[in-house]
Design a protein around this nucleic acid. Structure first.
Lengths: 193, 193
DNA sequence: TGAGAAGTAGAACGATCGTTCTATCTCTTT
DNA sequence: AAAGAGATAGAACGATCGTTCTACTTCTCA
């Protein structure tokens, strides 16, 4: 094999492709961004694109994979901080709020993608579903460790709250949504005391 | 003026166009549905289409206008029922839940449209913003009449809850979301007692 | 009765969609 | 030195995008 590869083993062209696509897909929407735009932004030719991704939809799934990996990384970092369970839940809620305020001002990548992919059997929707299920069960684990009562129900409610924060932050502005989110989330997680 | 018009004064062709477009836009997404599909479904020619709508985006705005009118109609009907304020709030919450369960199983038309229209100054986003602001203030009026404390905050939270219910109902299934929504909404509206 | 708006029919516009192709060049590995 | 994978360059595919156009018909209201 040839070509410049990064330390992770992935090719440089592929990574540039993925990063350009991620930015464009998130900022402008998926159907609105053509392959030409992506390869121009990445400084890559069509042939190179199709060598790494069999179709545009594979690139879309890879984009969601990056978003998924980012969030999992943030969770891992929080868990590695050595905080005790109840404190950890607070950190996660703060982290979610920070994420909406800083990184995800155009809404939730998964919700937005799902809006453009109605077919529940498509690869995109499967990626969305898997991410949501992971997120939900991760929260449940955290809440169980923090000895919150009814952790399963609370986890489901926190997923909903995050959806609402993402949507509301995008459409109404985060400043208007933040107090409601923080109040509801801390109460749901049993941290108000 | 000629042509078959309905009792409301709008032309029959325009109404068929609008209905076909509404179904297609909601079910499959906006960018994913071309003008050809819409006119074929409506049994209308391109010329007729562009006689009634200067561009596709005007049709999109009209589509959101229909959705907006439907919800306002539902609110008007509830208010005309003669129920007392606190009862009315309960009816509205029930109505929202019913709407998600029956009519809006593909998510919120406004949230989905916003996912495809990043430009906050576009006509589509303006329509989304106006609907949301109307919805919020309508809830605040209702909650104020019902003598709920902090009606402004409660109204904002109910908007978020509806967003969450729409998104969650679409992506996770309404059965999984319903209990969390009803519980949170009745508590937020001060009806749990 | 005649003006005029709304409808039908269908060709055509340039632009972009996602995708495939051939050909050449540049590396790394064996 | 030879093989082969990856990247580059650029033309080309058919299909669809949103939009405009001409020409003809039909109906209503002044």
């Amino acid at each position: 094999m040839a070509a410049r590869t990064t330390s992770t083993g992935a090719s440089a062209a592929r990574e540039r492709l993925l990063q350009s696509a991620s930015e464009l897909f998130y900022r402008e929407g998926i159907h609105a961004v053509g392959v030409d735009r992506i390869i121009a932004e990445a400084g890559v030719t069509r042939a190179t694109f199709y060598r790494h991704f069999p179709s545009k939809e594979d690139l879309v799934e890879a984009y969601l994979g990056v978003e998924d990996a980012n969030i999992r990384g943030a969770f891992d970092a929080a868990e590695a901080s050595g905080a005790e369970p109840r404190q950890l839940v607070g950190l996660v809620i703060e982290g979610l709020a920070d994420d909406v305020a800083r990184n995800h001002t155009r809404g939730c990548p998964f919700i937005n993608a799902a809006a453009e992919y109605p077919d529940p059997d498509s690869g995109v929707r499967r990626a969305v579903g898997e991410h949501r299920e992971w997120f939900r069960s991760e929260l449940e684990t955290l809440l169980t460790a923090a000895e919150v009562e009814a952790p399963e129900q609370a986890a489901g409610q926190l997923v909903l709250l995050r959806d609402a924060a993402m949507v509301g932050g995008y459409l109404d502005g985060w400043e208007r949504v933040r107090p409601a989110f923080v109040a509801a989330a801390t109460r749901t997680a049993g941290l108000e005391a």
